[in-house]
Nucleic acid binder design. Structure first.
Length: 455
RNA sequence: GGCGACGUGGCGGAGUGGUUACGCAGCGGAUUGCAAAUCCGUGGACACCGGUUCGAGUCCGGUCGUCGCCUCCA
């Protein structure tokens, strides 16, 4: 049976029916992080978006029939700068950042990709690719140790980003580098100073340009051609455009990736996220503020992946509330069979907001078994359930004691005392729920141990 | 300047020609000592102006507005 999955292909700028090159090995490459700092929520968007696509492909084609590659860029001048600034060596920066990244993405419930190649492990493949591009005269070395890709040699340059070489030339800024034949030519290899990381190459000691790593790693792991290449929309130009140029020209002009998928950008409370505006939000910031990973996922997937997403804490709190409501009705289970309407929404270019709408419908109709399946698929089942924040047992006993006192007060109709106890507990971050004879309590996000101790 | 995206009810957010998205908030009710939680019910929208059509949020043209990329960036 044919699988009716439609995806918006940035290359053709239309929604297309997805057909894998090989049904038994569906291949996807997604541009991963440059590891020099904590992952911000903008980094988390592609991770979560393509996590859903990964899950969907596994669901449709089989768990062992999808290969997902997400690289780690650990050669970059921003990393060098960071190491210099902190006075530590480069590996220290990259290793630490990679560990943070893994922890943060695990917290968000993202499945691990099948491969997570690091640029530093693929330098020889990059050198091979650059050499080949030179031998085919798509690229040229300069006397000062650079190698450039000659954009005008690749007739299709600009197809992905819908740019014309002639127009690009007009808008190009003037650079000091005079060793380029054409200002649009981009760096494949650049020389390193003694302080900078470098590898021996036919062009002297140097390091790769940014774009070549993805081409080399994708080829090595996935082959010359594969199904899906993804990343943030800002990568279309020049990164992905240059990847296409390098890969196509070094792979006998074979088409590189069949589908190009790009997620939209992220704003914070209506403003562009930037360090200067001091609204730079990392995933770790959210963890520290005690938001759950599943709520962050929900919030991220409640907007279609191609739309711009305005990150608001109001929305995140709403997500948290919804998931608590759902999680009270669902039970965790292992094998999920997606409800039809939820699946259909995903098949139409990953319409996750519509899927979530369908999940609300399942809840409203009391179809909790189906809701469980959907939540399992989406990673919405709370592994880190609200209301179970650890508090010391003696404090917990104290809370129980206070509730007992309150219930005695209620029975003797001393409501002012009962309400006082409830309000004090609420102020300390303990929420009380009366249901029939029983009174239960849970911790809220505003839990304050200090205040609780004083009660 | 070039390329592109977007403008839906208080907020969020789907929907590419033919009853209704929906969630949150609001309002009314049930429940409660009063609340919280939960449940039931409910009003409210398609930036503006033209056009096509029996019929448009949905197609076409224009106006206004917001944003992104073109330089490192998810």
């Amino acid at each position: 049976m044919e699988i009716p999955l439609f995806l918006y292909n940035s290359f053709s700028r239309t929604k297309e029916a997805f057909r894998p090159l090989d049904m038994n090995n569906v291949r996807m490459y997604v541009c991963g992080p440059t590891v020099y700092d904590r992952a911000h929520i903008g980094n988390a968007r592609p991770v979560l978006v393509f996590d859903i696509l990964f899950r969907l492909l596994r669901y449709l084609y089989g768990k062992d029939k999808v290969t997902y590659v997400r690289n780690i860029t650990d050669i970059d001048d921003k990393i060098n700068a960071k190491a210099l600034e902190r006075g530590v060596n480069i590996e220290r920066v990259t290793e630490e950042t990679i560990e943070w990244f893994h922890k943060d993405m695990d917290f968000l419930g993202a499945l691990q990709p099948n491969y997570e190649p690091r640029a530093t492990a693929y330098v020889s493949q990059m050198i091979d690719m650059v050499s080949k591009l030179i031998s085919l005269s798509f690229a040229y070395p300069s006397e000062d140790g650079h190698v450039f890709f000659e954009v005008e040699k690749f007739a299709d340059y600009g197809q992905l980003s819908n740019k014309k070489v002639g127009e690009l030339k007009e808008g190009v800024r003037i650079e000091n580098e005079t060793s380029k034949r054409n200002p649009l030519d981009f760096v494949l290899w650049k020389p390193s100073s003694n302080e900078e990381p470098g590898w021996d190459s036919p062009w002297g000691r140097g390091r790769p340009g940014w774009h070549i790593e993805c081409s080399a790693m994708a080829k090595d792991i996935l082959g010359d051609q594969f199904d899906i290449h993804g990343g943030g929309i800002d990568l279309i130009f020049p990164h992905h455009e240059n990847e296409i140029a390098q890969s196509t020209c070094s792979n006998d002009m074979k088409k590189f990736a069949n589908f190009w998928l790009h997620n939209g950008f992220l704003k914070i409370e209506g403003e562009k996220m930037s360090k200067s505006l001091n609204n730079f939000l990392t995933v770790f910031d959210l963890i520290k503020r005690d938001f759950s990973g599943s709520a962050i996922r929900y919030n991220m997937l409640a907007t279609h992946y191609r739309q711009p997403l305005d990150w608001k804490f109001e929305r995140l709190a709403e997500a948290e509330k919804t998931l608590v409501k759902w999680n009270n009705k669902i039970r965790s289970k292992n094998e999920a069979d997606l409800p039809k309407k939820v699946l259909n929404a995903l098949l139409d270019d990953l319409n996750t907001p519509l899927s979530i709408h369908e999940m609300h419908q399942l809840f409203n109709k009391g179809k909790f078994d189906d809701l469980t399946d959907a939540c399992e698929f989406f990673g919405f089942v709370a592994k880190d359930k609200k209301g179970s924040l650890e508090i010391p047992s003696e404090l917990s006993e104290n809370v129980d004691k206070l509730i007992k006192e309150r219930n005695i007060a209620r029975l003797s109709k001393n409501f002012s005392l009962a309400d006082k106890i409830r309000e004090d507990l609420l102020d300390a971050g303990i929420i009380i729920k009366d249901s029939g004879q029983e009174t239960t309590w849970e911790t809220s996000q505003n839990l304050e141990i200090k205040k609780l101790k004083k009660l």
